[in-house]
Design a protein around this nucleic acid. Structure first.
Lengths: 237, 237
DNA sequence: ACAAAAGTGTTGTACGTACACCCATGA
DNA sequence: TCATGGGTGTACGTACAACACTTTTGT
C-alpha cells in the first residue's frame, strides 16, 4: 500500500524541504501613558525594514531561527534586542506558514510577550518605534493579521488569568491595575466590583505604602508571585 | 548599532538555516466503544515507525511539509492517509522545536483533529492502530508530551465550546452526547442539568426520530451547523 | 408490575453587576 | 467646603449543582 509507506517517513530524510526556512517573531505588548497620570495605552514595538521585500515598512521584531537555538530562546533574544529587557510573560502564539505570505517560503513561529510599563519608557534603539496596538500602519508581510490575533489572545487571556499584572511595575494601585484591564478590553469597569474580584483571588499582597496624588491616597499592592500569571498546561519546560 | 541591523534581517537571506527541517504531525481524536452499547473511550491512531530513529516505536501520523503546501493542507493530508476520511475539526496545536527532540534539527508544527465515531470503526491501514488516548505506550520522539498537551487542550475546549459534537455522527441522543463529555472529562455529569445546558445553547436541532433500545426511547438530535464548533478568533482563512 | 433510562421541577449557593453610600485628601 | 477618587455595603439576576419526581418503554 502506498499509504503507510508515506506515513512511516518521519524525520529522517529531507525530501524537498530545502527551500523552507524558519523564522521567529514576537509581538511585544507594553503600556504607555501620554502624560504622567493619563489612562494607559497598549503599545507594541516595531522595526523598520531596510531591505526588500517590504523595504521601509514596519515589521515585527524577529529573525532566523539559529540551528542550535530553541524556539523560546530565539524569541527572548529578539525581544531583548528590541526592548533591552526581559519579558514578564512569554508564550507561543501561532505558527504562520501560508505559501504566499512571503516571496520565498518562510514558516514563522510567532511568540507574544508582555514587558512592564517602565521598560517601554526607555529610549528605543534606532529603527525601533512604539505604536498604539489598535492603530497600526500597514505592516510588512502578514504582520497586521498576526498582531490582530495576538490582541485577541491578550483580550481573551485577560478574562481568565492574572496576566494583566505582567504589564505593571512591582508596586501599583488597584486603580492602575484596573486601568490596564480597561485599556486592554476597551471598556470601563466598576471600581467597587473590580476591587472585590481581584482581592478575593489571592493574587495581590497589600503593602503599607500609599500612592499620594490629587486625592485620597491609594494603597500600593505587590503581585503575589506564588500564583502564576497564566496556566500553561502540560507544555514541556 | 548592532541591534537594529540584526533585527532588520527578516526573511531575505538564509544564514545558517540549512539544517532545520519542518514537519507537520497531527493528533487525531476519535471515539470507540468496545461492544455496541458500552461507554465510549477517547482513542487516537498511531503509526509504527519502520526506520531509525526510534525504529518500531509508535508515532503520531505526520510527514515533511511540502515546499508548496500550506500547513493546514499538510495536516489534512496526513490525516486522510491515516483515517481515510475528513476531520470534523482541525486546529493548530503548537510548534515543537527543541534542539534535542530529534537527532537532526526538526521543527514540528502539530495539529489536532476530531473525526466522528463511525470513522475510526473502519479497518485501519497496515502499520496504523488505534490506542486509548489515556494509556499509551512509550512513543517516538517527544510524542507522549505532545499527546498530553493535546488532551489538555481537548479537555479545556470541551468546557467552553461545542467541540464534543465533532466526535459524534449526524444523529445522536442526549445520552450519547453526554457520554462523550464524560469520556473526555473522566467524570460523570448529571443527565438533567446536562440536558438543560445543551438545549439552552441553541446548538441542537431535535428530530422526530427516536433511538429505541432496552428502555424508554430517546429523541435523536442533529447538530445545528449554523453555530461553529469552536471560536477560532481572527485567524487567517 | 418492575427496572431503568428519558425527561421535568424545585431549591440553594455562588458569582457578576448595578448602584447607593461613606471616607480621606488636595486645593 | 467641595470635588474627586478610594473604599464598603447591599440588592438583584443569572448560572449551575443537587436531587426529588414523573413518564415511557422492554421484559
Amino acid at each position: 500500500m502506498e499509504t503507510q509507506t508515506t506515513m512511516a517517513r518521519q524525520p529522517e530524510h529531507a525530501a524537498s524541504t530545502d527551500a523552507i526556512r524558519v523564522a521567529v517573531s514576537t509581538v511585544i505588548f507594553s503600556l504607555q501613558r501620554r502624560s504622567g497620570r493619563e489612562r494607559p495605552t497598549v503599545v507594541i514595538p516595531l522595526v523598520r525594514r531596510t531591505r526588500d521585500p517590504h523595504d521601509s515598512r514596519w515589521a515585527l521584531p524577529g529573525g532566523w531561527l539559529g540551528t542550535e537555538e530553541n524556539l523560546e530562546v530565539a524569541a527572548s533574544r529578539t525581544l531583548g534586542e528590541t526592548t533591552g529587557l526581559a519579558p514578564s510573560f512569554l508564550e507561543q502564539l501561532y505558527a504562520f506558514g501560508a505559501v504566499d505570505r512571503s516571496p520565498s517560503r518562510v514558516v514563522s513561529i510567532v511568540y507574544w510577550a508582555l514587558v512592564r510599563e517602565d521598560v517601554s519608557a526607555q529610549p528605543a534603539p534606532q529603527n525601533v518605534a512604539w505604536f498604539d496596538a489598535t492603530a497600526l500602519p500597514q505592516l510588512a508581510f502578514d504582520h497586521n493579521q498576526i498582531v490582530d490575533y495576538a490582541l485577541w489572545r491578550l483580550r481573551n487571556k485577560v478574562g481568565y488569568s492574572r496576566i494583566a499584572h505582567g504589564l505593571l511595575p512591582e508596586l501599583f494601585t488597584l486603580a492602575e491595575l484596573r486601568e490596564v484591564y480597561e485599556a486592554i478590553l476597551s471598556k470601563r469597569l466598576d471600581p467597587a466590583n473590580f476591587r472585590r474580584q481581584v482581592d478575593s483571588s489571592d493574587t495581590l499582597i497589600p503593602t503599607d505604602d500609599f500612592r499620594t496624588g490629587s486625592h485620597r491616597p491609594a494603597r500600593l499592592y505587590r503581585y503575589n508571585h506564588d500564583v502564576e500569571l497564566a496556566e500553561r498546561g502540560p507544555l514541556p519546560q
